[in-house]
């Protein structure tokens, strides 16, 4: 691709540049349009960083404190504490379980589309995935709250000892007391990120040269052997990229998760119990707190953490892909 652009540029330069070409207004305009994204990112980073650091600068909270598990942001509280650990842990746990559920299905689906599906099946499944992407997150949340949550609470209610009781936990109960839970959040998310992981993995599988497949099959291996020993290793970086992108989407999703996870601001204990995440806590508290109070500053710190997660994942994807190029 780069090669093509360069050749083209060279052709373009062959004519002697006239004054008009040197000023090249169109080039400036289109450059401005593209560069506006840099402007947006810088602005966004500046605002969220500045706002997110207020908790430390203005309110004098130490970095150590935000890593504590105690969330007591009410200024009237006797032991004021801005521990963000429950929210960070919740985000990590809910996202991790969602990936655990979604990755095998999504990678399987990508393999199906790229290796197994006949043309007609692909012509149905691919548009279906695009529609999946388009279903708004509030609709997923609504389905979660009207179907999934009641299903979980009634089907597994008290019957199965699923929870991992923690000593001193007042509300230690086996099974689902309520369907609003870590599992409900992860299930909703796992469906929402299927299209992301599938489409990126699909591209990775398609990028494996056809000759490799033919060669492998000519050696008499089965299709599954080819997939396992050839395709998956060759496309591994692409699949990893897909998982990282799915993770980013899951960690940043707000409304659908908030509707089903129960939002209990304590450390996650069991998949049958309510947990909270960074995004859901922001949704809960932002409207009730006022601008400039330490409580709201802590919410901005949470959004800064989210921003750091998403920017790091972009960097991570780049590192993964650079290694692929190098390999």
């Amino acid at each position: 691709m780069a090669q093509l652009t360069n050749t083209y540029r060279a052709t373009g330069l062959r004519a002697a540049p006239s004054l008009r070409q040197r000023i090249d207004l169109p080039r400036r305009v289109v450059f401005g349009a593209a560069a506006s994204m840099i402007f947006i990112v810088v602005l966004l980073l500046a605002f969220i960083t500045w706002q997110g650091l207020q908790l430390f600068i203005k309110d004098g909270v130490s970095i150590g404190q935000i890593l504590s598990p105690t969330w007591q942001p009410d200024s009237t509280s006797p032991n004021l504490s801005f521990g963000l650990l429950p929210f960070i842990a919740g985000t990590v746990y809910v996202t991790a379980l969602a990936l655990l559920i979604s990755t095998p299905v999504s990678v399987g689906l990508a393999l199906f589309l790229s290796e197994v599906a006949p043309g007609w099946a692909r012509a149905i499944v691919q548009p279906a995935l695009e529609i999946f992407v388009g279903i708004p997150s509030v609709v997923w949340g609504w389905l979660g709250i009207t179907i999934l949550v009641p299903f979980l609470s009634h089907t597994f209610h008290g019957g199965m000892v699923l929870s991992l009781p923690i000593a001193g936990d007042v509300f230690r109960v086996p099974g689902f007391l309520t369907g609003f839970s870590w599992l409900a959040g992860s299930l909703v998310l796992s469906i929402m990120i299927v299209p992301t992981i599938t489409s990126v993995s699909y591209d990775a599988f398609r990028a494996v040269p056809q000759e490799l497949r033919t060669g492998s099959l000519a050696l008499g291996t089965t299709r599954w052997q080819t997939i396992r020993h050839l395709l998956i290793p060759s496309a591994l970086t692409g699949v990893l990229t897909a998982i990282v992108l799915g993770m980013t989407r899951a960690a940043g999703e707000a409304l659908a998760v908030q509707m089903v996870i129960g939002n209990s601001p304590s450390m996650p204990a069991a998949i049958t119990q309510p947990v909270t995440t960074l995004t859901s806590q922001i949704t809960l508290d932002m409207g009730n707190t006022v601008f400039g109070e330490p409580w709201q500053d802590a919410l901005w710190t949470m959004s800064l953490v989210l921003l750091v997660i998403s920017i790091s994942s972009v960097v991570l994807v780049r590192v993964i892909n650079k290694r692929r190029m190098g390999a």
Binding site: T76, F171, T178, Q258, P265, S266, A269, Q273, P274, L284
Partner: peptide, 14 residues
């Protein structure tokens, strides 16, 4: 102004 229970099986809805 008693301190409410937290954690485990408590829900928070907005």
């Amino acid at each position: 102004n008693a301190v409410e229970a937290t954690g485990g099986q408590t829900l928070t809805e907005d």
